[in-house]
Amino acid sequence: MLIGHQPKDFLLAVEGLTVSFDGFKAVNDLSFYVEENEIRVIIGPNGAGKTTVLDLICGKTKATSGAIHFRDKDLTKMKENQIVQAGVGRKFQTPSIYDDLTVFENLEISFPRGRSVFGALTFKRDAIVRDRVEEVAEMIFLKDRLNMSAELLSHGQKQWLEIGMLLIQDPDLLMLDEPVAGMSVSERIKTAELLNTIIKNRSVLVIEHDMKFVEDIAHKVTVLHQGQILSEGSMEKVKNDPKVIEVYLGH
């Protein structure tokens, strides 16, 4: 632990994080801190390394150097499933759901119980599971589609389903990669409303391009550019930062 860098109340502390792919540094000496119950939005031009940062936190990509502390755990040394069990949830950019299963089964698999091989064999679909699945299905507007095969859902519904799958995991840190991309206007409004209910009592890290949406939800914004932080602070501050206007918002 780097003493003095890390007061206790940070949920996530990313320090000196670097990853290089064949010499190209996609993320370069990046440091930022997320507090409990904070909603942080990461913005930046294409190729800035936003998705890579999420990949590094959830263990999909291994860091070349640097540390990611989540509470008292070092995520860089953990496996993906251990990171999830520690309380980090990740939504992918394209809806990542199980087409061959029903909506109910999709949600049930994400229910945080019976995650070992033996646990999965003996898993019972009891009232607790059923109630929780129904509760989440109601929040993600899919209550009447529980028995439908997930492949028949629309794009927006698939995005909601994946958000629901994360919700049922009940993570302390929720990471969303472009949750409203490709959605219709009405779906977008519903999603914003959905996100506003699910971000309570947890920290959220969001990547998003829709500036209106970012303004609505962000507590703090981090602007990435070429793998480094260009600017950080409130939306107001970031919006008026000349560097940010030049590389990103000005376009």
Partner: peptide
């Protein structure tokens, strides 16, 4: 069992299963 559904899920979206907290290799 749920294990059967996880197998189907894995066949479909291995990463999603992994990032739902399961050790795909063990299954």
């Amino acid at each position: 069992s749920k294990l059967g559904r996880i197998l189907v899920a894995m066949r479909d979206k291995e990463d999603r299963v992994r990032f739902s907290g399961y050790s795909v290799a063990n299954f």
